[in-house]
């Protein structure tokens, strides 16, 4: 379980150091922050766009005091964040939440769309550790497959299976078909997953069938980020404090909700 440290939750306001365009809708934003640069793969930050909003974002990379988050413009907050310029101020709290375990040897990472972000961070951390890695990424179309060139370099002695729904790159189809295909042939010590919740639910069902431990990174509406307000509750868990990474045992306890329902801003349970 993640520990709460007061200094992590004090907001730091800092200028944007660098912005990189990943594709038409997605940018990677880099800033300097000592505390966040100690984050482990799977953790998230709360990022403040002054007088607009504050949103949870997965950490994509951290090194030498620099931290990057990758943001897909999907709503008003992410749109205004992605239209910010280098040098403009953002506020940062975190890092928050727990992180992926890194003990297992033969790992399968499966990420859909922008869900690849924490898995890319994980990949960077574990790829040198003498592990056997299979990296499955999937998206609607080729230019939505994020970080492809870096992944190819990182995984030069590993397996990459890419899937696009329109067949513009790699296998044509949906990402979970690639998962089933490989699990029929190979056994893994662990599966790490992040992506749309319906995809992760399918990954969970498949992992259960093949009896492979899963760690999935969940997403919910968040307000406080520190386990107080209840906005991100799923079953008995708070995604911000007890997660965002949940293992198979925990996912079994919330299987009525996982992939099916979430709380809206009013705290009302709605279908996903």
């Amino acid at each position: 379980m993640s520990a709460y440290l007061r200094k992590y939750n004090i907001m730091r306001t800092i200028p944007i150091l660098n912005i990189k365009t990943e594709n038409q809708t997605t940018k990677t934003i880099t800033f300097n922050d000592k505390l966040c640069s100690r984050a482990k793969p799977g953790q998230f930050i709360m990022l403040w766009i002054p007088r607009v909003d504050e949103i949870p974002l997965s950490i994509m990379n951290s090194q030498k005091g620099e931290v990057s988050v990758t943001v897909k413009a999907v709503g008003s907050a992410t749109n205004s964040l992605n239209s910010m310029k280098k040098g403009q101020n953002i506020g940062v709290r975190g890092p928050f939440g727990n992180w992926f375990s890194t003990r297992s040897n033969k790992c399968l990472l499966i990420g859909g769309g922008v869900g690849i972000v924490p898995l890319y961070f994980l990949l960077k951390k574990i790829v040198g550790d003498d592990k056997q890695i299979t990296f499955i990424n999937g998206a609607k179309t080729e230019n939505e497959l994020l970080f492809m060139s870096s992944i190819k370099i990182l995984c030069k002695n590993q397996t990459i299976l890419s899937t696009t729904e329109d067949g513009s790159y790699g296998y044509k189809g949906i990402i979970t078909e690639s998962l089933t295909k490989i699990l029929r042939q190979e056994k893994f010590d662990i599966i790490y997953a992040c992506g749309p919740e319906s995809m992760m639910r399918n990954v969970f069902d498949i992992a259960e069938l093949y009896k492979i431990p899963l760690e999935a990174s969940l997403e919910r509406l968040m307000r406080c980020g520190i386990g107080l307000c209840g906005s991100c509750v799923i079953g008995q868990y708070r995604v911000c404090r007890d997660g965002p990474i949940f293992n198979s045992k925990q996912l079994r306890k919330i299987q009525d909700e996982f992939g099916f329902s979430r709380l809206d801003f009013n705290g009302k349970k709605i279908p996903i």
Binding site: I10, M46, W48, D53, E54, I55, R223, G225, N266
Partner: peptide, 13 residues
């Protein structure tokens, strides 16, 4: 009635 609450930030340490 149901209420959405305020936009973030809703909490500050």
């Amino acid at each position: 009635e149901s209420r959405k609450g305020f936009e973030n930030p809703t909490i500050v340490q």
